[in-house]
Amino acid sequence: MATAGPVLQEHGRSGQWRGRLLRGLLIGTAVLFLGLMLLVPLATVFAGALARGIGFYREALIDPDALAAMRLTLVTTALVVPLNTLFGIAAAWAIARFSFRGKNVLTTLIDMPFAISPVIAGLGYVLLFGAGGWFGAWLEERDVPVIFALPGIVLATLFVTFPYVARELIPLMQMLGTEEEEAAISLGAGGWTIFFRVTLPKIQWGVIYGVILCNARAMGEFGAVAVVSGHIRGLTTTVPLQVEILYNEYNAVAAFALASVLSLLAVVTLVLKTTIEWRTGLRGRH
């Protein structure tokens, strides 16, 4: 392309200068946008938490209501994450290892909680187990509290974090294929042996990745839990709800102190998530 040479060159010289300007402009815009929308709010949390000094910060964190909220959040997460992990593995085994009717419908239904407002998730459980709900009277007779109690909080959190592990594992297991499992079968291995010795080692990073995301969402869930919790201080208040209560009582510093714990958790989550992505070549698909 002899004729294109000089044209390209001229295009190139002024283009190079303009290219550099454009590059700087675009990087500047991106940094400014993310700085304003993400970094400034994050920094505000920590600045707000320490606004009255380290002593006040410490006291806000060891306040009995704050400790009760942390305990409730930890108990809820300890129940939710293993249940949804078990489900994610089962769902991925069924969907990625077998062909069956209605597979697409099942996959869509598993993703559904991502498309539904957390408030609507909570509402669904209130309509089931609340005072006027389907099983409300039955539960009340037997004195089993669900709504405004731990079971309701666990159920609402299960709903919003439902797809996290399954969503990581289904595409991963589809990509890995079934050859190694079939080889193990031909060598006489049983189902559980195949799962623990062949499949699990292959998907372990996918499981850990899903668990990290599920854990972060479970500890931070607000909307769904707000509907079913009843906001009983020291009893049914998770850490995010306690943040709301403190903030609405004009105790912003204590609210930010608790929020800073959740923010640290978020930062740790991001670091772990990014490390796993770099180490394994896994990439978030959200």
């Binding site: 949390v45 707000g48 850490v239 995010p240 943040v243 929020a259 978020a266 990014t274």
Partner: peptide, 19 residues
């Protein structure tokens, strides 16, 4: 910057709200 993009997924919504 790339890792920071996921902050809204990781940060509890009540925290981003008060911030």
């Amino acid at each position: 910057l790339d890792a920071l993009i996921d902050l809204p997924f990781a940060l509890p919504t009540a925290v981003s709200g008060i911030a």
